[in-house]
Structure formats: structure tokens, C-alpha cells
Computed example of a mutant assay.
Amino acid sequence: MKGVLLVNLGSPESPTPKDVKPYLDEFLMDKYVIDVPFLLRALLVRGIILRKRPEKSAEAYKKIWWEEGSPLIVLSKRMKAKVEQDVSVPVSLAMRYGNPSIESGLQELSDKGVTEVLLFPLYPQHAMASTVTILVLAEELRKKKFPHMNFTIVPAFYNQKDYIRDLSNSIKKHLEGFEYDHLLFSYHGIPERHVRKTDVTKSHCKIDGSCCNTPSPAHEFCYRHQCFETTKQVVAFLGIEEGKYSQTFQSRLAGDKWLEPYTDVEINKMPEKGIKKLAVVTPAFVSDCLETLEEIAMEANHQFKEHGGEEFKAVPCLNDDDDWCKTLSRWIDQWAFQTEEQIV
């Protein structure tokens, strides 16, 4: 019997330091997130970051927390409910960090008799700290507790025509009536070394002005290339003219060289360049979360206006958009019935 496990990032149980701390510990101690030796990672995370970060992060979560709970969890559940209504196989939802866990999601499917699992990381672009860590943990759990299961992996869908169409139409819908001077595509940042580590050729990724535009097998797993390609295809779909859009990376940690240009730095410079009305879209996420609702819609908005900007529009993620949920359902059923046109 076939079934689907949708996997998103995750969230603390509540916006309190008590619940944020174990969530951050699980997240930051992941060797695919902070990819340094365990002892150094433990010293950095548990000896330094977790001393003050939980209180600060809890305050940020409080700003965006909904009455029903974490926006990311609530929105993921709404998306899952719509998908579940339209497909012919069982669907379970899991988070890489926090609850519901990947183990509980697999257990739910197993209890329903599922042996063939479509493992679906809800990330358009492939990255170590998102896609890879989900796949590694799921495989570890399969070997230990669910040996009767087989996995089929949904690859990065950053350039799938259905995804590009739904993302583009969503952007167009949310920007209706807003005459922006500039549209910024802000992607979650990662350390540059992560890009090099996922380079299957071990030589292509130079992170310069040409490697992402030069065809290579490395692009199948290159986060940077896939971000640029998503932007390129959305811009083409919407017919946005050159000079009216740009791309940046957000949410960096101190101490490492991360993908550039940085979102906050670029946004702060825009008003002096004559950009007074700014729209920001965050295509690295399919569900709104702390990074979109607080970092962009609140903090970036504030900083833009502090530097002379006038109007700011944060475009929501796809969330439980009806067309997007129908696309997910169609992809799932194409896999379930092994039709010719499918994403996996």
C-alpha cells in the first residue's frame, strides 16, 4: 500500500524560552545545519548560542504566534488537509524538528498498512540544511524501526512548471493594486561551503558570476543555482522587466561566509537608490514561518522605512493556496498511479 509523508521545517511548542530552547538545540545541533565536528558544535551551540538565543527567539516567535499555534504548523496542517481530500492514498505530515516528528509520521502511515512511502520534503530548492537532513533522518528511522517500508524521494521542484505557475500566480494575486518600484526575491541563506559540499563534480561550484549559469550535473543539488533558476522562471512567467527585480539571501549566522548579497543590507540601501515601494517574496519556503513573518514582514519592513522607504509589501508564501494544493495532489496521484507525467 502506498502513502505520502509531507515534511516541513518545524516549530517550538510555544513562544516561550522553555520550549524554544530544546527546539533550537535540536535544530542547531544537526550536523547538516552547523556542519562542524560534534564537540565544536556543542561548544558553539550549548556553550554560547543557547545561553541567550532562546529568550531572543521566543520574543520573535511571540510577535507572529497565532491563537491556533505556530503559523508554520497551522498552515502546514491546512495544506495537508486540502491535499488529503484530493488524493487516493494516506497522507501524513511531519516536521524535521519538533512535533509532529518524522518518526510519528512514518508510524501513522505504517499503522494504516503503508509500505511504499513517497517522502516529500516541502522545500523547492535542494540544500544540506533542509532536504538532506530530512532524507538522512528518515532513512535512519526506516532502517531501525520501519524496515518493511520503501521510500521514493521527491526531488527539488524549483523549476517544475506547475510550481512556477502557482508561485507566479500567487505573487501576482497578492501584488494586485500595489505599484511596486522593485520586487525582491529573498531566499534563506546558507554558508558558501554547503554549496561546495553538495557539488557532485567536486569542481564546478566556484560561487562566482558564471558557474550557476553554466550547465553542469552539479546543478541537481546546487541550492544557489536553483534559487537563481526559480527567480529567472518566475520573472519570465510574470514578464517583469530587467532592473525591477533582484535576488538576495537572508537569515545568516555570524562567523562564516554565507551566500550574498544579504537581504537586510540590500533592503537598507534601496531607498537611497530611489526604491520607495518595495515588494518581497520568499520562494525558499512554501509555508510562512518566523523567517517570513517576523524577519521580512516585520523587521525588514521596519528597516526599509527607517532608511527612507515608503511602502513595503511582504508577499505570503504558497501556504494552503488552492491551486498549490491541487498541484501537490496531482503530483501525489501521478506517483501513486505511475502515470507518465510525474515529478518523481
Score class of each variant (00 low, 15 high):
residue 57 S to E: 10
residue 120 F to M: 06
residue 167 L to A: 03
residue 126 H to Y: 15
residue 58 A to W: 04
residue 66 W to H: 12
residue 247 Q to S: 10
residue 99 N to Q: 13
residue 143 K to T: 03
residue 34 I to Q: 09
residue 66 W to A: 12
residue 308 G to A: 10
residue 252 R to I: 09
residue 233 Q to P: 00
residue 73 I to Y: 14
residue 69 G to Q: 11
residue 170 S to I: 03
residue 162 D to E: 11
residue 301 N to V: 00
residue 104 S to L: 05
residue 315 V to T: 07
residue 83 V to P: 00
residue 28 L to S: 14
residue 48 I to Y: 11
residue 230 T to V: 14
residue 10 G to P: 03
residue 191 P to G: 11
residue 330 R to W: 06
residue 235 V to R: 01
residue 299 E to L: 10
residue 118 L to N: 06
residue 180 Y to I: 02
residue 247 Q to I: 12
residue 85 Q to E: 11
residue 63 K to F: 10
residue 323 D to L: 08
residue 316 P to M: 08
residue 338 Q to C: 05
residue 199 D to S: 07
residue 19 D to P: 04
residue 47 G to L: 11
residue 244 K to V: 14
residue 193 R to K: 13
residue 99 N to F: 06
residue 102 I to V: 15
residue 325 C to Q: 09
residue 50 L to E: 10
residue 149 M to V: 01
residue 177 G to M: 07
residue 75 L to A: 12
residue 110 S to P: 03
residue 264 D to L: 07
residue 18 K to R: 11
residue 224 R to C: 05
residue 342 Q to L: 12
residue 44 L to K: 12
residue 9 L to I: 09
residue 232 K to S: 15
residue 167 L to I: 07
residue 222 C to Q: 05
residue 319 N to Q: 12
residue 200 V to H: 03
residue 315 V to S: 02
residue 99 N to P: 01
residue 18 K to Q: 12
residue 34 I to A: 08
residue 250 Q to A: 08
residue 239 G to W: 06
residue 115 T to C: 03
residue 314 A to R: 03
residue 217 P to H: 06
residue 299 E to G: 00
residue 338 Q to D: 15
residue 158 Y to P: 14
residue 325 C to E: 00
residue 29 M to L: 14
residue 295 E to F: 03
residue 238 L to P: 00
residue 56 K to L: 14
residue 238 L to I: 02
residue 319 N to H: 09
residue 143 K to Y: 08
residue 188 H to E: 06
residue 317 C to Q: 08
residue 334 Q to W: 06
residue 39 L to R: 10
residue 182 H to G: 07
residue 209 G to E: 15
residue 279 A to H: 01
residue 101 S to L: 07
residue 180 Y to S: 13
residue 327 T to L: 09
residue 327 T to A: 13
residue 269 K to S: 07
residue 56 K to P: 05
